[in-house]
Design a binder for these strands. Structure first.
Lengths: 114, 114
DNA sequence: TAGGATACCCACCTTTAGGTAAGAATTGGG
DNA sequence: CCCAATTCTTACCTAAAGGTGGGTATCCTA
């Protein structure tokens, strides 16, 4: 019994570190579909506050998941897009998203029973 | 341009609702390997507090991811194991875990540069 | 009868994630 | 000269997540 197991060998740690945050998964998904500017993201995710929107975008940029491109126009324009690394993460998230689509109703039902 | 997009169609929402929590991913991974009793889990994840350990286990049980079996022995014994649903979620998490194993070092490096 | 092992339960506290609302920089147009 | 549009920025606050340290119940064994 009781084989020895290293928790780190699970591998979820680093992935969660990078994608944890209320809106990051959704933002990455949106940006992997197509580049978007700040205002677009704000409209597409109407419940996010501006503060969290930039904060999450900045962190994802720092982690190399997305890139930020500034166009020196007036009015100003900033476009965010997914990097290769970001796309690879989004791909790794797809099975999870499918699981959510498949079992979301079941979960919600079980929770409302409570 | 600017196709209309429904954020819900991403599908990550329900999945994150169920797996969010500092230790849930790791716990599910451990329990999909083999059933474990409370004390074993506590030893395998030494940084988790007892409070969070049961709290997470209880929530995962309520969500149908794991099952809890009580053996009326002395000293008492409670065994937790993954359900079908839990196993399916763990499978959906595997690509994410692989992503973490592959890019964890890269992420950590980028973060320590800061 | 005291102590040990196991699996909890609880009250309290700290930390952190996230929200609100206001304001600032840019620069072209009226 | 003032205003508008866009992308932030900042100070402050709330709520939720998680940690700490103690206590409880059970029954077996010494």
């Amino acid at each position: 019994m009781g084989k020895k197991v290293k928790p780190e060998s699970c591998g979820l740690g680093p992935a969660f570190e990078v994608i944890a945050g209320k809106w990051k998964g959704l933002l990455l998904w949106l940006l992997h579909l197509q580049p978007r500017r700040f205002g677009e993201l704000k409209r597409l995710v109407p419940d996010v506050s501006e503060k969290m929107l930039i904060q999450h975008l900045r962190e994802m940029e720092a982690d190399g998941l997305i890139r930020r491109e500034v166009f020196h126009e007036m009015p100003p324009r900033v476009e965010y897009s997914a990097t290769e690394l970001g796309i690879s993460l989004d791909n790794a998230l797809e099975p999870l998203a499918n699981w959510g689509k498949k079992h979301g109703a079941e979960i919600a039902a079980r929770r409302s029973e409570a």
